[in-house]
Nucleic acid binder design. Structure first.
Lengths: 259, 259
DNA sequence: TTTCGAGGCA
DNA sequence: TGCCTCGAAA
């Protein structure tokens, strides 16, 4: 059986909010290393990969591998019932029909409990190769969100260009064009505002802004976001969570005419 | 003639907001004890009963009984013109064609005045028997609103079950099931958060969540809400206002198959 | 599809 | 209290 107690229900809420527009139904794969999720969006352009390690829970117990096939819309409805500092416990039997969510509010004597029916989901498990990226950019997640939102007003696509000068987000649209340049900088005072660029080779790729804007819904999960780019491979957008848990998005670049 | 001065126009605004989706047209019955309203919703499942005692006004003058038949949609439009701390004075002749609303903003020297045409409304006056309820639950109105909202995401109906252990709101739906348990508790520190359960007999009844959610629009009128239940009689949902004025909703339980 | 209003969250 | 997001109506 699975029994996983998450001190802050908020975490799961934010994760699900960030991915529910990309993926409708998906498996939460539970085993003794934690809870993982991997799914492609409907148009097979983007991939979401979440890992919540056992350390994110206390306690965490999962006797054997369980795949919980959940409709994220239903999960969202239930998670909406979580109040800000509720403690969430996920429970499931070994061959479950439902997953059970219990919200405890330590202050009031309020316990709410929900069962969500599970579904069988055929999941092609994708091995994601560990790639050495030509460029890695780490920046404050609100900054990235802002850039994507601003540029999406002008165009469908953005080019991300990393060079030793910095990183440049640029787009052209009917009403004009726009670009945002960030130079790498590290300030001890404000480590949250650092922009770190790690470059082995200059790279320039173009991506759909619609997807990037979508990924940015995860901004609340982490102060920083890491963008990893290499020519002709999908962009990795990573939000690190506590205890080496993470939420990652992969997005295939636009090629040639698509741009 | 009627002349009733309400220090806070907001009060009437909130009352009308809370009932306008249930009732389109209704009489405001004015007499020397105050202003009362009683109306069934269109489907005759719910009943609204409001009482604003003379003490809620200063001054209050009403020489003889007057029934002001008002379209609540029109009243809403006019009340929307009220600013947050406007003082509202209602005026009507003895055999009125219109009711006159005057908004005064004490700070600025701003006076606005509206007339709403009245209508003749046949009103069956329902004697509501004073019932001894098997169970009375008093809880913070935002909590009740929250529960109704959360559960309405899952189902059309909620069962409310009062026992000596506490009160349990539960529902089943297509995507799963949910329940919220509250234990009675009284804390001197946080009297607003108290959940008080007064029980002569356990009771379990099922109600339409759509209506309950609607009633909860009155949450802004009072910190607390009182639920009174007995088998086979309508649920009473009461919001107490200052000086023993009140806004009450009655809702017939669902029976048998309906659940 | 676009706009407006209402409700929820910070 | 103000902002933002979601849902409903045009």
């Amino acid at each position: 059986m699975l029994e996983a107690r998450l001190e802050q229900a908020d975490l799961l809420k934010k994760v699900v909010d960030a991915i529910k527009d990309l993926v409708q139904d998906c498996n939460f794969d539970c085993n003794d290393s934690g809870i993982a999720l991997q799914a492609m969006d409907n148009s097979h352009v983007a991939l979401v990969s979440m890992m919540l390690k056992t350390e994110a829970f206390s306690p965490f117990r999962c006797d054997r591998n369980i795949a919980l096939g959940i409709n994220l819309g239903s999960l969202t409805k239930v998670l909406r019932a979580a109040q800000s500092n509720d403690i969430l416990t996920l429970k499931a039997e070994d061959a479950p029909d439902v997953v059970n969510l219990v919200f405890e509010n330590s202050e009031s004597d309020r316990i709410s409990e929900y069962d969500i029916k599970l579904m069988d989901i055929d999941q092609e498990h994708l091995g994601i190769p560990e790639t050495e990226y030509a460029a890695t950019v780490s920046l404050p997640s609100p900054e990235f969100q802002r850039i994507c939102r601003d540029l999406s007003a002008l165009s469908e696509s953005v080019s991300i260009e990393c060079s030793k000068e910095g990183v440049k987000f640029a787009c052209q649209g009917d009403i004009g064009s726009g670009s945002v340049h960030l130079r790498g900088n590290t300030s001890v005072d404000n480590p949250e505002k650092n922009v770190e660029i790690d470059l082995t080779e200059p790279v320039s790729l173009t991506f759909s802004l619609k997807y990037l804007v979508n990924f940015c819904k995860a901004s609340g999960l982490s102060k920083n976001v890491k963008l990893c780019l290499s020519s002709e491979v999908p962009l990795l957008v990573e939000y690190s969570l506590a205890s080496s848990s993470y939420l990652r998005f992969y997005l295939a670049p636009k090629i040639g005419d698509e741009e």
